[in-house]
Design a protein around this nucleic acid. Structure first.
Lengths: 187, 187, 187, 187
DNA sequence: AATGAATGAGATTTCATTCAT
DNA sequence: GATGAATGAAATCTCATTCAT
């Protein structure tokens, strides 16, 4: 088993497993995610998974919790960089059109999480928390009502562009107009 | 018995299986959907599943295809009932806030489909088609750009309200304002 | 896998598994009884075990229940053959010294059952029932008090002779004297 | 540090492990006794078990050997306190009815030992020795034949009362009568 | 000397699929 | 055509034991 040395204390072992799990989930879906696939992907022996995590469910939970944390960080970072409302509107357009939040890989994981959340309490909480987080990032610049609407727009529109990504990317001008409309009319 | 044509015992057998599959998917998730669970739920003998469908994947595909058809029908119906733009705006607000499209059961299935679509070509096509269908329903009343934005708004906002359904339902006034903003400003 | 033909309907399959389980328990002890060992012993494929029994616990339970039934039958048969009290005393002596009830194989299983009964409710009930059954067989010939004492004597003495079986077998004269003493003095 | 002899950190470590093992065996049975469970129960680090004992089998052996020693001590003590035959008869009645030898905890362990003895030579010897020990305690007061019978009576009767402990405790008068009968008639 | 993270062998279990009836 | 008992491949999980520290 190349790459799987016997190391007495590998502090990053758990993180490697979580990272491997997310890769496997993205590639095959939760419904075909197995211990073996994660172990191989993380270059870790099979027994290591159940040593560090009670069961597969625990791994999935941790993986999705990690995903939310990562996305929240990115989202907050993008919005936090805006120093005035004009920049904030620009940031929202980026989030809708952006290649990072909207990275295919991220979307696949997001869908898997939304689906899994309906069958797992811990993930459900995290998934519910996520809209609050993203809206919080917007609240520094927009009215509460605008925040709600913008947040929905970002979620829905980035999703739709993900679906249609092979039929041409997003049109920033239209997105900007929509953002302006919501911000101006929901004061 | 010459001349006595053999009549299929249960002509609705396939439909019952598909319906059962959707129930199981909603309850347990694709990742825990099994032949046995579907058979029990559909009150159909186990062997019936592999008799009518090549394998489990085929059942899931058909189930999700059926789901899209059902949802499209509802969505188009709701928009089709609108006779002028004012009614169409009202219809969009309904879709965002509505209890039918937004029925928890439907949402769970939608998420499962979005997740599964990333790993299955047939379902992927159907899921991609879905935004086109929903936007088509809007196009009789709004500009193409408004359609895109409204469609995103419906998808994202209804999702967020589903997530937060225990913290109070949608506020129709705000939703109406957002819809008006987009329609007025994306002519 | 010699001996494991694919048979559509093998009505004795469950019985064969139970019989195999008892053999494995007798040979290796419950603590080393595995699905695989039982399957091999019963000449049955591995998957067959969990098809017929929910889990290993279910197999052990059924096996011990079967054991009690078998033993009860033998015990009752031996006592039932006695037509008067003199024959009944003789039968009790046989039970203490006997090679059948006291067959090493049976004893090993009895000990395993007594041990397992403390950790399993179903087996506990059966094990508790067993003294009642054996005493019931005696009750046709002796007073209730004599029954209790004789029953204890049979259980304890046959066990001790099993322990010491390599240091010489039981002495029928002494056993008969003990039986007579209890019967005569507990009227 | 010349001259500073290294003192074992915890000289009672082995004893604690044995005691913990007996507790785990009583609670879960040999078939579910694990290193980890013993370590936790004994409040001892996991590695300590394999440091002090070759393997799990060695722990079980030592544990059962310890059990026999403890029980023998109690049994001999109880009989040794008897200064004449009348007191000895009383002591035997106590053993049958007694709450100490017959303590549920002890019984569970005894059954586990009898079961395990059939699959382990070291424990088998100890278990075989046990009747000899108990009979030895009796031999100061009764004939060899009475010893055998009384010993069987104690073993069997205390067991049966353990089984039926929820249906009322032992009846000392009947037990005393049985003891008297055997002692008087097996001189 | 003592520990506990780590591993792999093997245990239990699940289940899609086959196929005799 | 239709069924469900049966199977085996592969999944999850357990745990005795090792060994770097």
């Amino acid at each position: 088993m190349a790459g799987a040395r016997r190391v007495a204390n590998d502090p990053r072992r758990k993180e490697r497993i979580i990272a491997g799990a997310l890769e496997v989930i993205a590639e095959r879906g939760v419904h075909r995610t197995t211990h073996r696939a994660i172990a191989e992907r993380a270059s870790v022996p099979l027994g290591s998974l159940t040593y560090h995590f009670d069961d597969l469910t625990a791994i999935l939970e941790q993986a999705f919790l990690h995903l939310v944390a990562t996305m929240s960080e990115y989202y907050a970072g993008r919005m936090g960089a805006a120093r005035d409302q004009a920049e904030a509107r620009e940031a929202v357009v980026d989030l809708v059109c952006g290649t990072e939040y909207a990275a295919p890989h991220q979307f696949v994981l997001l869908f898997e999480m939304y689906a899994y959340a309906n069958h797992n309490e811990a993930v459900r909480s995290a998934a519910r928390e996520w809209p609050r987080v993203s809206r919080g990032s917007l609240s520094a610049h927009f009215s509460p009502q605008a925040c709600r609407a913008l947040d929905a727009l970002v979620e829905g529109w980035s999703m739709h562009w993900y679906f249609e990504r092979e039929q041409g990317g997003p049109d920033r001008v239209v997105v900007a107009a929509a953002v302006d409309a919501l911000v101006d009319r929901l004061p």
